Simulated scan of single mutants.
Amino acid sequence: MFHFSNLVRSKGDPKIIATGPSSLTAADRLARGLGWFSIALGTLELLAPHRVTRALGMEGREGLVRAYGVRELLTGVMTLSVEKKAGLWSRVAGDGLDMATLLGEVRPSNPRVGTVMAALVMVGGITVLDYLAAQDVARQHDARRGRKRLYFDRSGFPKGVTAARGAAALPRPTSTPAAT
């Protein structure tokens, strides 16, 4: 079987023949996908705000769309980092901001109100994914999640306190070293 990672290996490195199961949970994989989605959307909003505003009937609000693009990029990077919990909750908050902005564009004078409604449905669906991922990652990394370990009945001596006392009471050798 061909693996792309073999292309970048040095001559002496062992070749990858097969890969095993991933240590990433479903929540981690969802968080990763949402992080990359956020980076892609943020790039679009930052580099092509005119297309976004034209599609939604929001001409003249390109600066706002660019600011939302920067926010998307930052939350995407955070979601891909070790701070994925904070990144996902930032995405949830950003989704609320996006929905509030889109709701302001649902008005009779907007010729693209149908597109805005479709965008609201999409943002709503993504918000559900963001919320579920944030909940799962928070639960997965919760220190209180596991069973508490109580050590009140342990001494710290592998063979017990009695054996340790017995070892300490052994007589010492009385031989003296020979003088040279």
Score class of each variant (00 low, 15 high):
T180R: 12
A18C: 00
R71E: 04
R91F: 06
G76T: 06
V82A: 13
A133K: 08
A169S: 15
T43K: 00
R61D: 09
N6W: 05
L7P: 07
A119H: 02
R165K: 12
V92R: 15
A100G: 02
R144F: 12
E62S: 02
L30S: 12
R112W: 01
G69D: 08
K84M: 02
T75N: 13
R144M: 11
A100Y: 06
G76V: 05
S81W: 12
V82C: 06
L24C: 00
P158T: 01
A134R: 04
D153M: 00
L24T: 04
M1W: 04
A143G: 05
G146M: 13
K11D: 15
A48T: 06
L97H: 04
Y151M: 02
G35D: 06
G160D: 05
D95Q: 15
A100D: 02
L120I: 15
T53S: 14
Y68R: 10
S23N: 07
W89S: 09
P108M: 10
S10H: 14
L80I: 07
L170F: 00
L120A: 08
V113D: 03
V121D: 11
A134H: 07
G96F: 02
R61W: 05
F37G: 08
S23R: 08
A179M: 09
L103Y: 15
V77C: 08
P14I: 10
K84L: 02
L73V: 03
R91E: 09
G57K: 13
R145N: 15
R149S: 07
I17W: 09
A138N: 13
R112Q: 12
L80N: 12
M99G: 01
K84S: 13
V121M: 05
I16C: 01
Y68D: 04
P14R: 14
V137E: 10
A169E: 14
G94L: 14
P177T: 09
R172F: 07
P111R: 11
I16P: 01
R145G: 12
G114M: 07
L44T: 03
L150H: 02
V123W: 02
V82H: 11
M58Y: 09
V116H: 15
A164C: 06
E105A: 14
V70Y: 04
V52Y: 06
T176I: 10
R149M: 05
L64E: 13
P158G: 03
R172Y: 01
G160R: 08
R144S: 14
L56D: 10
P14T: 10
L88E: 02
P111Y: 07
G94M: 09
V121A: 14
R139E: 00
L56F: 08
L74Y: 05
M117C: 11
R66E: 08
G146H: 12
L7Q: 11
G63S: 11
A163F: 05
I17V: 13
G33D: 12
T162C: 00
T115H: 06
F37C: 05
P171F: 01
P173K: 06
S155T: 12
E62K: 10
D28K: 13
G35V: 10
L97M: 11
R91T: 09
A133F: 11
S10V: 08
S38Q: 08
G125Y: 13
L132R: 12
A179W: 05
F152C: 03
G160V: 03
M117W: 03
P177R: 07
E72L: 04
F37I: 05
G63M: 11
D136K: 09
M1Q: 10
A163N: 14
T79Y: 00
R147E: 09
Q135Y: 10
G124P: 03
